[in-house]
Design a protein around this nucleic acid. Structure first.
Lengths: 209, 209
DNA sequence: CCAAAATGCGAGTGTCCGCTCACATTTATC
DNA sequence: GATAAATGTGAGCGGACACTCGCATTTTGG
């Protein structure tokens, strides 16, 4: 999508109206994502993106006020794909056990990080984030999955403590998955088992103690 | 330190021999660290570093073959400081309990991330790492602390499983601490308590099940 | 003291790349 | 068809910045 009515720096670009231009925008964003993943943010140039997309630089700036806006669009599309990869782990099925719920959560997060791994890494580690809104919205959605797991565990709810527990769980799972991704061990079954065990152990201790 | 006898790209620089030049190198590195922390890697320039240090650009290139080498030196010094912040949690004191050991570990990691937080973030998130060696050496040392905690927990040792457990524990603690740092909650006692609980719960479950 | 080595200087060079603009081409409207 | 609007083009401008080089100054060793 390239409807950029308001822009932080004033430079507004018009939205594509015809079919042709919408296709052009898609081509640009897809090519840009490939270039960004392959070269990293430091070597990500609009000129290379243009030739990779088979368009001229001018066409990029017809729809994006600057390089960063293009990266933001890539991020937005990617985060949507990631959320799609997680969906299914938030079913309100009360019959499944905590262990199964934890397994679904872990599998979801692993799946999310398996969507175009290199692009994911570059977007998270290298591309500076200009507008918090998109990122915040995504993080909130992400956190909700963890809160759901916390809430589904037995024990009396304690809003404040549960909130912190959500952050702890989220940070822990993300941390383990990120580390695994860096070492190319995302698909290791042993790691999956240990991670699920970590989640379950924590949940168990929280209703015991 | 600026003894760069071998350099990856061939450009070698001489080491400072006199007191004066050693002081200059220190001044440069310290100023560079401040600039890097304040402006981020993207806006970190050698010219600004030079004027911040009160020297000329030429003096920088007298001792560092390029900008990245300067950043590497900053990283090296910073990682040393971080290791110093952790030291003390690896005492082989067999009398203390697992809970106490876990607490020491968590406190150590938190302390490590409290050393010049912004610089730490920039170094980890933004500065590209050219030479793996330094980073790898540091990570190995870091992992050792976790392995020590794993080994101190009761239960029969299982080398392969313990190795994975070390990675899981390391990833989890790092992940939680990083997330907390991003939200400025590094000093929260509640978070500390929950994180220690996470570690203990995991260790407990590993000797029970 | 006096070479010679070490250190320090900073204007300038070369390169890279984001972005513009004047113009060409295609599509919509009547 | 004709006019206007939308879309596409790419050479090149301008600024940023890493890094060099010829020279000045300081320190060392004899």
């Amino acid at each position: 999508m390239a409807t950029r009515v308001p822009s932080e720096h004033g430079s507004v670009r018009k939205a594509p109206r015809q079919l042709r231009s919408r296709a052009t925008v898609d081509t640009i964003v897809e090519a840009a994502a490939r270039v960004l993943a392959r070269r990293g943010w430091a070597h990500f140039t609009t000129n290379e993106t243009a030739s990779a997309a088979g368009v001229s630089v001018g066409s990029i700036y017809q729809y994006f006020p600057n390089k960063l806006a293009l990266a933001e669009e890539i991020r937005k599309r990617h985060l949507d794909a990631v959320l799609a990869a997680i969906s299914g782990s938030d079913e309100r099925d009360a019959v499944i056990t905590v262990e199964q719920r934890a397994a679904k959560l872990v599998d979801g997060v692993v799946a999310a990080h398996s969507v175009d791994q290199e692009l994911h890494r570059v977007l998270l580690d290298e591309v500076p984030l200009a507008a918090r809104s998109t990122q915040d919205q995504f993080e909130a959605e992400y956190l909700r999955r963890y809160q759901a797991v916390i809430a589904s565990a037995p024990g009396k709810p304690d809003p404040k403590r549960d909130d912190i527990a959500g952050r702890v769980l989220s940070g822990a799972v993300e941390g383990v998955v990120h580390a695994a991704a860096r070492h190319g061990e995302l698909q290791s079954p042993e790691l999956r088992a240990e991670l699920i065990e970590l989640v379950c152990a924590y949940l168990r201790s929280r209703c015991t103690g």
